[in-house]
């Protein structure tokens, strides 16, 4: 089973040379720490920066330079700043190659829910609805089950949707899955996790074809 860093490490393998990548809040933010350093990648943050770098050294924080998680950041050579409309133009116009975000629920048809639990919690969608409606390649990073131990991979989402039929891949603490017209296709198992365990934690339709390899991370 993977921890949050393990999930981020596995997703980092999906980041290819020449990609512009948008990272959501939470586990997705960690992905930047594990991207190979022999490829060229630029991270976009929808509040208006391309070419995001690591956190600043203590004492060098700049209140005017943050990411979409409102964390202080630095920029790398080649970085640029822009306004929110232009930022979402990059996203809507499909200039960003890969979007990695968290979710509360994902359905076997690729629907995603991550902004509201009616009557209990409303964070708002932020940029997630724009990102999932436009990005061609959307990877969800999340734990396979919620705190109550219930599956987050469902036949249909029960929470208000963020987007419809948009998720392409899901990386959880247990598995890597692809959204297909048949359901969640199991691609890889996390180290030490069996297909049966993944099946038991998946409420939506799980498609298992042949031997399922263990993740290499």
């Amino acid at each position: 089973m993977l921890d949050k860093n393990g999930i981020a490490k596995r997703i980092a393998k999906e980041v290819k040379d020449g990609y512009y990548v948008n990272l959501g809040i939470g586990i997705p933010t960690l992905v930047a720490n594990f991207v190979r350093d022999d490829i060229s990648v630029e991270f976009q943050s929808e509040n208006g920066v391309l070419g995001m770098g690591p956190f600043p050294f203590e004492g060098e924080e700049d209140a005017d330079v943050i990411n979409a998680g409102k964390q202080t950041i630095t920029t790398l050579p080649g970085a640029s700043f822009f306004d929110s409309a232009l930022s979402f133009g990059m996203i809507r116009g499909q200039h960003v190659h890969l979007t990695i975000l968290g979710a509360m629920e994902v359905a076997e048809n690729g629907d995603i829910a991550n902004w509201k639990i009616p009557g209990k919690m409303v964070k708002g969608m932020g940029g997630a609805m724009d990102l999932v409606a436009s990005a061609e390649n959307i990877i969800v990073a999340m734990m396979h089950t919620n705190r109550a131990g219930e599956s987050k991979l469902l036949k249909r989402c029960t929470l208000p949707l963020t987007g419809v039929g948009c998720v392409t891949k899901i990386v959880t603490n247990l598995a890597v899955l692809e959204v297909t017209s048949e359901g969640f296709k199991l691609l890889e198992r996390a180290p030490g996790v069996s297909v049966d365990e993944i099946q038991a934690a998946t409420k939506g339709k799980l498609v298992v074809e042949g031997e399922i390899p263990e993740m290499q991370i």
Binding site: F55, P56, F57, E58, E61, A63, D64, I66, K70, T72
Partner: peptide, 12 residues
């Protein structure tokens, strides 16, 4: 005042 909401830093 320019308050910082999430002060995140890395170690030298």
């Amino acid at each position: 005042e320019k308050r910082i909401e999430q002060r995140t830093v890395r170690m030298r």
